[in-house]
Computed example of a mutant assay.
Amino acid sequence: MTDHGRIAISPVKTIVAILVPIIELSLGTLTTKIPSDLGKVSVTVLIFLVGLLALLYLYGGVLKADWPEFRAHLWRNLGIAVLLTIGLYGVLSLVRLGLQPFMPAAMLLSAQSTATLSLIGSLTALMAPFSEEIVFRYVLFYQWRNRGLLTPVMFVVSAVAFGLGHWNNFGGYVLQMIPYMVIGAVFSVIYWISQNIWQNIATHFLFDFVQVFAAVIMFILTFVMA
């Protein structure tokens, strides 16, 4: 367990890191104007790849510092990640179930992605565990630990921001982002307890992999049955 104590915060790096998902969301809305499905996928993946590389350049040292300890107990940590993933899906299902009565039918329908959008999500999801954990967990939460009332404030900020980061996934319907705000809060708790960003990355990767697998199968079946 790597206890970073009170971390020195770089305002410039923090601002740049926060701007990355904002720029990605803004550019992501423009990809809808691309007529080709392949073009949409290619441009979206490129946008997220550039964002990931920028974040790794800024905060790669955090991943490098935490990796030896995570690797030392790799199988134990991966086992924990599997259990946490199961728990996260349980939380996600419960929150969605609780919100379902408040969602109009149109909103429920809008959450059903097309096969192409699902494929886009599956490809970008392979990068999300790294970029999202760096921005939403480290930059917006963990580096603010041990700072009095600012720590719980940033806990809430990071959770809400993580949910809003899925704006394009749900067509701007904030109500549908609430479950991911809760998931974001759980991820922050995981980081707080483990004090190792790789535990979050591993758990996040497994969490997204389930959706990636389902999206790829959906994409394949769409063309097979066409």
Rank of each mutant, 00 (worst) to 15 (best):
G39L: 13
F130W: 02
Q112H: 12
G90Q: 07
L63T: 02
V43W: 10
S131N: 03
I134W: 01
S113W: 14
L27I: 08
L74P: 02
Y89P: 02
F102T: 05
T31F: 15
I80R: 08
G61S: 14
I34M: 13
L49D: 03
W67N: 00
L46K: 04
S36N: 08
G28A: 12
V82L: 10
E69P: 00
S122N: 11
L94T: 08
L58R: 01
T124R: 07
M107A: 12
L83R: 01
E69H: 09
H73D: 09
I86T: 03
L88K: 03
E132P: 01
V82C: 07
A128W: 04
I120H: 03
L49V: 06
T114A: 08
F48C: 08
G39R: 10
K33P: 05
L58C: 07
Q100A: 15
T32I: 15
R71E: 10
P129L: 03
M127D: 01
T29Y: 10
A105I: 09
W67S: 04
T31L: 12
M127S: 10
G61C: 10
E24G: 01
D37F: 15
G39D: 08
L109T: 06
L38E: 11
L99Y: 11
Q112C: 02
L97F: 14
L109C: 00
L88S: 03
E24M: 02
A106P: 00
L27M: 11
I23P: 04
L97E: 09
T116Y: 15
M127V: 06
G60C: 04
L84C: 00
S42P: 00
L53D: 00
L88H: 04
T85M: 08
V91P: 00
K40E: 12
N77R: 07
S131A: 12
P129A: 09
I34P: 07
L83V: 13
T124K: 05
L46F: 14
A65G: 06
Y59S: 01
S122I: 09
E132V: 05
A128K: 05
A105E: 13
L52Q: 02
L123Y: 06
A115W: 15
S118M: 15
G87W: 06
A115M: 14
L46A: 15
L88E: 08
V62A: 00
G121K: 13
K40H: 14
K64T: 10
A81T: 04
L84V: 06
S110V: 03
T114L: 07
Y57W: 14
K40I: 14
V50G: 05
F102N: 04
L92D: 07
L25A: 13
G28L: 09
L56E: 02
R71N: 13
T114N: 14
P101D: 13
T85A: 00
L56H: 01
G61L: 06
T44V: 04
T31Y: 15
L119D: 13
I34Q: 11
V41H: 10
L46M: 09
R96L: 11
D37I: 12
V62W: 03
L25W: 08
V95I: 09
K64F: 04
A128L: 06
F70P: 06
